[in-house]
Design a protein around this nucleic acid. Sequence first.
DNA 1: TCTTCGATCAGCAGAATTCGCATACAGCAT
DNA 2: ATGCTGTATGCGAATTCTGCTGATCGAAGA
Lengths: 225, 225
Amino acid sequence: MRILLIEDEVALSDALVQIFHKNKYIVDACYDGESGLDNALSGIYDMIILDFMLPKMNGYEVLKEIRAKKLTTPVLMLTARDTVTDKVDCLDIGADDYMTKPFSSDELLARMRSLYRRNANVIFENVLTWSDLTLNLSTYELFCGNNSFKLGLKEFSMMELFLKNGSRILSKETLIVKIWGYESDAENNNVEVYVSFLRKKLAHMHSKVAIKTVRGVGYCLEEKG
Amino acid sequence: MRILLIEDEVALSDALVQIFHKNKYIVDACYDGESGLDNALSGIYDMIILDFMLPKMNGYEVLKEIRAKKLTTPVLMLTARDTVTDKVDCLDIGADDYMTKPFSSDELLARMRSLYRRNANVIFENVLTWSDLTLNLSTYELFCGNNSFKLGLKEFSMMELFLKNGSRILSKETLIVKIWGYESDAENNNVEVYVSFLRKKLAHMHSKVAIKTVRGVGYCLEEKG
DNA sequence: TCTTCGATCAGCAGAATTCGCATACAGCAT
DNA sequence: ATGCTGTATGCGAATTCTGCTGATCGAAGA
């Protein structure tokens, strides 16, 4: 697991880096908001540990910018500010957890494990992967080996849902609600058409993955071979 | 969002139910560990709020059992115990967040939103088990040991009913209503045909479970050996 | 206890109908 | 113009249903 630590108190930062190393994590440390944001946007991290009080740009702004750029990396806020509104604000703009100083390193590690466990194999470097498929969430490109396709918005949304759910079956109603929205008059046929488009592209790329239909129920991904 | 609240302090439970209602969440409340676990295993919830100190079975045990049954519903622990080891233990056996009493309801709601947001597009794994059989409600797969079968829609609905009712007898009329719907001209023979399909698959998997016919009444599951 | 008879059930195979697929085309926005 | 999106249609496939035959069960009477 690769971690980005954004924390300006050098003593604390160093201590955490040591602890993370002991736990076999790869860590990069930043000491101000701007460089933290730059590094975060590289998209290579599995988790970001973010302090609130930072030089140049505070943690709240960094987090906001990260989410505005559609980066989905899990963020754990780590701060001395413990008012409820601070916590609520951060959680609501996209933080995944929030710990107040002073804190126990064991608890921090446990919370990181918990967060990572739930998102394991789902999002890595801001792309979604499943079997030999990789979907870039920023460019809407779908990769399989050396081949790639740029997907349209609807195709992309559908592929995203499939990749996030793997072999779990998604009903057409679910797909309609998640892709076209709760109130829409999209019909089953719309789903079928886009499934057909995606299948065509998967075949072109010789992917091992196929979209399997479960008659009367919905669709799911399936790995061939 | 449908929430299961497992909390034995009635005053707190009632207050939370009110708060959840205000936020348009659907809530079911349980007051002890055993009934909480039963309800959790139904698999219909999007999130579980779980107290630690509970009659009959404590929260730790409930959580352990939930994860042992491969249920992936997010669980937020809510408890008076605030030692680090308690937190670490719970997070490591599968809790997604941990709050200590007393807590702010606003923070609770924010943490719930955060947890829900991150998993918004993921269908949680839900399974039903009885004896050596496990039915994955997300993939329509029926497992027995290493063997598995993908079930069709009607087979699946029937198996789901059987597993939910265990050794309780289900009449053909009940099965018809639940599988084919209230208004349908499906006849007893339809039920018999699908019972036969399922029996064939159970035999193939060498399951200890058999569908027993109770002549003139209906069917139920039976464990052999 | 054994036998008999009617009712109920299992299992198969082929028919039917629903459901899904692919393609074509029109509308719209960029 | 180009590409994305939504709608319509006929074909194809798989599940689901129906009808039938033989098997099994259980009650009642000898």
